[in-house]
Write a protein that binds this DNA or RNA. Structure first.
Lengths: 193, 193
DNA sequence: ACCTGAACACCGTTCAAGT
DNA sequence: ACCTGAACACCGTTCAAGT
């Protein structure tokens, strides 16, 4: 029985969520799909293209239009949507970050942020990538700590302070960090206009 | 003839700079060193530990004490030092970012930033990781674009605007992005004190 | 349009054994 | 203290050929 590109992506998403990005190999995905590894290369030029398609799927499933309002609220809302979309799948942030770094994929969160920032192109470009770096970096860290603690590598509760490498994680820390970057953008916007 | 841990790290740094992180495999490093792959496991528990040691070396070679002054200048100066240190080796940022993400390595740039921020621990923690995410993300992007253009995948000059995925790169964009984050931290610091 | 079969050129890691 | 030899269980990708 023959598969479509979309079947492959859907299946890859399941392997990702169940076993993590490190275990999402072409050979494993093919085996799971009941097909030879080489069959995947009819659908995708290479593994990176496959991963980019999966990343697009993760984002498209989680990102909705943002409500009207001042730009600060719209940007903040979109950033939270990105985070939620990536948190919905194991290693979602790392997946999206690599697809983003390679410039592959249809989804264009940086471009989306540029639009939402509603300011001159030059500042918008830098602000958008700064915001995106924060979101991708933060959520990648969150998901790595989630996985580490679920594996038992970290035995203590996340509230205990003072340990080296310890960081505040979760929604509060994300909101605070995001607030910092947005405030910085606001300061620069005011200075220009 | 027998090698030390430090010999291995030095050699790995050369392979990294000449062939990139993707080609820095245990087998290749061993071959370059004139030794069996298994020999490396006497010096390092696994590949990640080796990479963490190489990342430490990159940072220790490039980071110097920062001059006295207001916290904004000290933080800015340290961020530029981190960037320069990572730019000095091919794929330096990606290497440091993964070591950082896994929490390995002796170097603790996040902790260093916390100290330089000179404010209460709670804000400093979030601000430090936000700054670090920006630096690592930005420089990783810079180095990927450098490599892509050196390979000829991007044929146009970096000043031509309007292309999808195009971003302002280089020292100016870094300084601007850094200024945004620092301004945001300043705003939050003022609100707290 | 979609897949098989077989091959090529690789990986990280372990472990007993050697010097 | 440092390394060999050999094995185990994997990788991504190509390409002629099949249906």
């Amino acid at each position: 029985m023959s598969h479509h590109r979309s079947d492959v992506v859907r299946h890859a998403l399941e392997v990702l969520d169940r076993h993590g990005l490190a275990d999402l190999s072409m050979r494993r995905l093919a085996a799971d799909l009941g097909v030879q590894p080489s069959a995947l290369y009819w659908h995708f030029a290479n593994k990176q293209a496959l991963l980019a398609a999966v990343a697009d799927e993760v984002l498209s499933r989680g990102v909705r239009p943002v409500a009207d309002g001042p730009w600060t609220e719209r940007v903040t809302s979109y950033a939270h949507q990105l985070r939620d979309a990536m948190l919905a799948y194991r290693d979602g942030a790392e997946l999206v970050a690599t697809a983003q770094a390679f410039g592959l994929g249809e989804a264009d969160p940086a471009g989306r942020l540029v639009d939402l920032l509603e300011c001159d192109e030059e500042l918008a470009q830098v602000a958008a990538t700064t915001l995106l770096h924060f979101v991708l970096g933060h959520v990648t860290d969150e998901q790595m700590n989630l996985q580490a603690s679920s594996v038992g590598a970290i035995e203590d509760d996340p509230l205990s302070p003072g340990r080296r490498g310890e960081r505040l994680m979760g929604t509060d820390a994300f909101a605070t960090g995001l607030g910092i970057v947005v405030a910085g953008v606001a300061a620069h916007r005011g200075a220009k206009v």
